[in-house]
């Protein structure tokens, strides 16, 4: 084993990349849950986004259009969940699971002609000046644009939830939907928009896997990333900034175990591959201290 082959700068840089798909999916789910809806279909929306993004990017040659397609694909699938849970008042846990099972099947069907194809390249940005700073430059300022999109989204969602009236309405709907309804807010409309936003974010996260991180399409390639995103929302106590911490923690474990695999550590590969999932459980146990939104996963039905 040769631990000296692990370059700490590269490790930290790839940590940011590894965290991005989870971060994108988790920030979307955070908004959904703050609106009082528990969508367990993140995994299904992510993988659908991964395949939609890949198909569009390969078809058009543009990764940017691919990400657009992924967001639309994810949002459409989420809309299905929204219609079922908001209009047909189905159980959110069961419907979320159905969304995941459905998404896995759908993505496998769409992607069957695309296995083994390489995605069009999505070059890294070398941000002038900042990117030239030693150590910090390569870690933070030499990534592909989507890494920054993720970071900007986190900041934007924090601002939206805490500093705007729209955010206040969304939180009110999530905390107590009956009171919000009595105040005249459109509970179902707010929730549908939140659900679709969550789907679009999950789609972006999935497309980041198929277009940047891997970059190829394989069946079931999200491998639980959507579930980890759900776990990170709980870990973050439904607060955007702590989400960042959770995603980087997870990204760190992932990257570290991959590096240890490459360095030929005496531990078998399978046990290293388990570590991100075990880390997620450990983190959930230690850190599930936040308070969930009051109306989370409760069915809203305005009776007169």
């Amino acid at each position: 084993m040769d631990l000296s082959s692990i370059n700490p700068i590269l490790l930290l840089a790839s940590l940011m990349v590894a965290a991005t798909p989870i971060l994108l999916a988790a920030i979307g789910e955070l908004v959904v849950e703050r609106a009082g809806v528990l969508n367990l279909g993140v995994e299904g929306m992510m993988i659908t986004g991964a395949v939609c993004g890949f198909v569009v990017a390969v078809g058009t040659g543009s990764p940017w259009l691919g990400f657009g397609g992924a967001a639309i694909g994810g949002a459409l699938l989420a809309l299905l969940f929204g219609i079922l849970t908001q209009y047909l008042l189905s159980n959110q846990v069961a419907t979320g699971l159905a969304l995941t099972l459905f998404g896995l099947g759908l993505s496998a069907l769409i992607g069957q002609g695309y296995i083994g194809i390489k995605a069009p390249s999505f070059p890294d940005w070398h941000i002038p000046l900042l990117g030239d700073i030693p150590v910090i430059g390569p870690i933070v300022f030499q990534h592909d644009p989507m890494v920054y999109v993720g970071l900007i989204l986190v900041a934007a969602i924090w601002w939206f939830l805490n500093k705007t009236q729209g955010g206040l309405v969304l939180r009110a709907v999530g905390e107590n939907h009956d009171a919000a309804h009595a105040l005249g807010y459109k509970v179902i409309r707010v929730r549908l928009l939140a659900i679709m936003f969550g789907g679009a974010c999950a789609g972006l996260g999935g497309a980041y896997l198929s277009l940047v991180r891997v970059p190829q399409w394989t069946e079931g390639m999200t491998a639980g990333a959507g579930w980890i995103a759900l776990a990170i929302v709980v870990f973050a106590g439904w607060k955007p900034w702590r989400l960042l911490l959770g995603a980087y923690l997870f990204g760190g474990v992932t990257v570290l175990q991959l590096n240890l695999q490459a360095a030929g550590l005496a531990i078998p590969v399978e046990y290293l591959s388990m570590s991100p999932y075990i880390a997620t459980i450990v983190v959930l146990v230690i850190m599930s201290s936040g308070r969930a939104p009051g109306s989370l996963s409760r069915i809203f039905h305005a009776s007169r």
Binding site: L84, S90, T95, L99, L101, L104, L106, Q112, E219
Partner: peptide, 18 residues
């Protein structure tokens, strides 16, 4: 395609919930 069956099973659960 095999995936079509997986999709069919997912669809069944969706329709049931709906």
């Amino acid at each position: 395609p095999g995936a079509a069956i997986q999709l069919l099973q997912g669809m069944l659960l969706f329709f049931l919930l709906a």
